[in-house]
Design a protein around this nucleic acid. Structure first.
Lengths: 180, 180
DNA sequence: CCGAAGTTTCAATAATTATTGAACGTTTCA
DNA sequence: TGAAACGTTCAATAATTATTGAAACTTCGG
């Protein structure tokens, strides 16, 4: 049967594979997972030992975590060491990630689309017409996603929408029983 | 000034960089972009010429697009060639992508979490306690994301929620004028 | 059944991305 | 001020992922 230590390692590994999902390297994600799995803030040394990474890799991962607002650095009492405290409010963590990816990735795409659309209007060929319509559709959809992201960043979309969905899900489960 | 051809190339390139966003290789994403940018379904040969890719790469990209439900294959009249027609309903496209990623990536994570949680209860140390609470939080949040994804897949979340947001956005723009 | 036209496969290679570790900084305190 | 303890950087290297292209396969008309 798996010990807490085993599960911790498996969790850290799994969490690492999700790195690409939110745009960081597996190592950075693993370090965040490691921090989350511990009750106390961890020093770089502890991360090195726990994860089998090089000193440099831990340093870079922790810096990236700080850039994303996913960890804070603290001084350890009576030592020169630093310890990293993870952001444990996951909704806040997600909000930080969404904000950064939106700024870095979506916003430039929207800009490009809005720059291209007027230029395409000058070409009256049916082919260019279709292309323009497609870009317009894309612009609309990404614009919508952008609004949703913004709304999420401002308030608690998760609270409002999430609760509604959970209630709906619960009542659906209560009513017609699960098939099979 | 940029011609339609130039813009098409830039768009295809940009679209390619978004591949990692939804979990396919840049080439696959570029081929989808190319198909979207054309008014008529394209043969493999046309993709090769338009994108400067090898025959094999186009073949693999198109297969992946079919797997994701993002393109259909059609026979060309009076020829043995095939032509690829892209899914142009973008909401449907997104739904396909969400469905596949959910199945491939989120669902296994949820399974693991639900397998680990009971095992952690046997360890009564305060450390394991904290770890368990963190995993519980994660499980709750991913579970919520899962419900939201499911709701999106079933009905038109975009229609319902999107319209609401668009209206809110429009009225905000009407009221207080844009700053600067 | 043959061969031409087209498509797919996959081992080899190229390109990209992640990781290391040794050298360089910085801080602290005797 | 010096040296020990710790942190950071980045060029070199390793690992991973994407792409090619030549060989194998399929389909179809004659």
């Amino acid at each position: 049967m798996a010990s807490t230590q085993d599960i911790r390692q498996e969790f850290v590994q799994l969490w690492g594979t999700m790195g690409s999902f939110w745009g960081v390297s597996p190592t950075t994600a693993r370090v965040y997972g490691w921090l989350l799995s511990q009750s106390e803030p961890q020093t770089a040394e502890q991360c090195v030992e726990g994860l089998g990474l090089s000193r440099g890799a831990v340093s870079m991962a922790c810096r990236e975590l700080r850039d994303w607002g996913l960890a804070q650095v603290e001084r350890v009492e009576g030592s020169r060491q630093q310890a990293y405290r993870p952001e444990t409010d996951l909704e806040k963590a997600i909000r930080n990630i969404v904000a950064m990816r939106k700024r870095r990735e979506w916003d430039p795409i929207l800009e490009h689309l809005r720059e291209w659309l007027p230029q395409l209007e000058r070409d009256r060929s049916p082919d260019a017409q279709v292309f323009r319509e497609r870009l317009q559709q894309i612009e609309g959809l990404i614009g919508l996603a952008d609004s949703m992201a913004e709304s999420f960043l401002k308030g608690g979309l998760v609270q409002k929408l999430g609760l509604k969905l959970l209630v709906a899900k619960a009542s659906a489960a209560r009513g017609p029983r699960k098939k099979r």
